[in-house]
Each structure stands twice: as C-alpha cells, then as structure tokens.
Design a protein around this nucleic acid. Structure first.
Lengths: 150, 150
DNA sequence: AAAGATTGAGTTGTCAATCTTC
DNA sequence: GAAGATTGACAACTCAATCTTT
C-alpha cells in the first residue's frame, strides 16, 4: 500500500514484534525459574524506587507503566497482598494514595535485578553492536516521544 | 551489574519496551476507531491467509502467534462466532482441525490492512531513517533467531 | 463539578485435566 | 500411550459506575 511498508519496512516491523514477544517471554521465564517476581511487578518496584521520596502516586504509576487507573489499583492490590508494597495516604491531599516499598519489596527488587540484567544482556544486548544499541536508544526515544501526542 | 547494561544498553532496552507499548496501543486504537478487527484477530487472519492452502492447523497457529494451544482455541472460537473463520477437520488426520477464512474474513483482512499499514508507517517507520529500518530488520531477526533455541 | 482512586461486571488469557484419534 | 485439540476453573485486565476529597 504505502511506499515505506513496501520498502523493507514491513520486515522491520514484523521482526520488531516477534523479537519483543520472544525476548519478553524468555526473560519472564528466567525470573520465574529463579523464584523471582514477574516482570510487571518488577516494573512497579522500580518505578516506586525511582520516584522522588521512593513513593509514587497511583495515577503516575499507571502512566509510567502504560496501564489504566484500575489496572494500577489491581496490580498494587496484589503487590500489597504479597507484602512488597504499602499504600500511604498523602498528608496534603487525602484523595491521593502513594505506593511505597516495604523491606521485602526492596529485597525482591535487589534479588531480581541480577537475573533481569542478565536477561537483558544475553537475550537482547548481546546480539547488538555498540552502534546498534546507540541507534536504537535514539530511535525508540524519538518514537516514544511522538507517541505521546497522539 | 554487567558491563553492557551499564554502557547505555539499559536505556536502549527501556526505550525499546516503551516504544513497543506505545506504538501497539496507538495502532490498536486506530483500528478500533475505524470499526476494524483488533490486532490479534488481524494476525490470525494473516496467518491463515499466508498458510499453504489458506488454512492452518490450530497448533501451528499457536506457535506462529506465540500463544498456548488453548489460547488458540479460544481465539478461533471468537473469530468463528464473528463468522470470520471456519473450522475444517482434516481428511487424513481427523484429530486435527484447520482454521480457514470465510468471505467475511477475507473482507475484514482487506479492510483492516490500509489502516494497519498507515499505523505502521506513521507511528513507527516515519520516525526512522532508511538505514535505521535496515539495521532493525537485521538486528531483530538475529535476536528472534537466537530466542528460538533457549 | 473535577481529580484521585477504587469496585463490579464482563472479557481475555492461562494451566491442568479431558476427550478423541492416531 | 502420545498428538491434537478442547473444556473447566481460575487469574489478569478493562470499562463504566461509584465513592471520597478538593
């Protein structure tokens, strides 16, 4: 149909999708086999850890993880049941809730990182040259930025 | 931890994940707004269309789409309810079932493609140079291949 | 009334068990 | 008994409606 897709672009797109699916499911399996938290939980823990004051609003979490609001609520419910996070109500605005890490949450994060990092390295980065890594970082941030608007 | 992730690799990984999530959800929205089939349905239709004889085994479909067997069954159930596909039992091996396209299925495929192609172009390829497109096609096929084994 | 978050109802996807055919 | 596929029970996710605080 369009010129770009015909021009080898479709192949890039397809391999992009398939590579993503394959790498993610492999890393997911790595984590599971080591008795560690699933990838989404890990993302939650990282987001909390990385937020100012080591706590994050539910809605900010939803944005960060490309989830719906209710999706974030459900997710934090489970992490809270697993004693990895805790909800705190904000002092100044009592509508809001913050998610914070428990000791166990910080531990889970620390334990998962080596395996996750190894997965990223071996299943993704190891197959790329330094130039490709740099190119992807720049290309994908461009795409991500453009995706925000529309 | 490892050298690669520290060396800018982590940024490439993160932007890869976020770009994927953003682009997919935008294309999904495009299709929905035009009253077209969701992306997974589209993948099913394409897989059937592209298979020899325009029909595919349930298990082959599951492999192709990175789904479980039962996932494939459920999915085809819905497409069949929507009258887009039909199940045929194989003559030679009556354990197996083939999914085939109906007339409406072929139509749905035809109607969805322009919008999908536009999404791929505008939301993905438009942000990449020709060199980047080529690089990604080669890099991601490498990754995908390596992912098969483990 | 609007922002922040949660809940209820429904949909989609997965695992283990089952059924049929080889 | 094993391969191909389906079903039942259950977990994950989404949308619309709701509740609370501003």
């Amino acid at each position: 149909v369009s010129k770009r897709v015909a021009d080898g672009g479709l192949e890039a797109w397809r391999s992009f999708l398939q590579a993503h699916a394959a790498v993610i499911s492999n890393i997911e399996r790595d984590l599971d086999e080591h008795g560690l938290v699933p990838l989404i939980w890990y993302d939650v823990l990282v987001a909390i850890q990385g937020a100012p004051g080591h706590r994050i609003r539910m809605s900010a979490l939803a944005d960060h993880l490309v989830l719906t609001r209710s999706g974030a609520t459900r997710l934090i419910d489970k992490l809270e049941t697993a004693k990895l996070v805790l909800r705190e109500t904000a002092d100044d605005d009592r509508r809001g809730a913050f998610a914070t890490l428990t000791r166990a949450g910080r531990d889970a994060l620390r334990r998962a990182w080596p395996i996750y990092a190894r997965g990223i390295n071996e299943r993704f980065l190891a197959h790329l040259s330094q130039r490709e890594v740099e190119m992807m970082a720049s290309a994908f941030s461009r795409i991500r930025q453009a995706s925000q608007s529309s």
